[in-house]
Amino acid sequence: MSKVYLALQDNDISRYIVEAIEEDNPGVTIIHNPAMIRIENEGTLVVNRETVEEKLGRDWDVQELHLNLITLGGNVDEDDERLSLSWNA
C-alpha cells in the first residue's frame, strides 16, 4: 500500500489539526520541517470535523483546512464531516 500525505503550515491552528489527525489515524507519521508539518500514512488518512472541533474548542468547517494546507497526495474526498485521502493500489 502506498503512502498518502498532507502538509500543513506550522502554526497555531495546525497544531490542533495535527492532534486530531493523530487521534483518528493510529500509526500516522508526523515530520517537522522548517515552517511546515508533513503527515504521512499508509493507504488512507482522514481529518474529521468533530475531532478538530474538540481540539480547537470551537466550530470548524472542513473547508477551513485550505487556509493551512500546503500540499497533499492521494485521491481526495471531502464532505461536511471529513476530508479523506486514499490510494486504491
Binding site: Q9, H66, L67, N68, L69, I70, T71, L72, G73, V76
Partner: peptide, 9 residues
C-alpha cells in the same frame, strides 16, 4: 501552495 493543493486535486 494552499491553492496548489486544490490545483493538484
Amino acid at each position: 501552495q494552499s491553492d496548489e493543493a486544490r490545483h493538484m486535486t
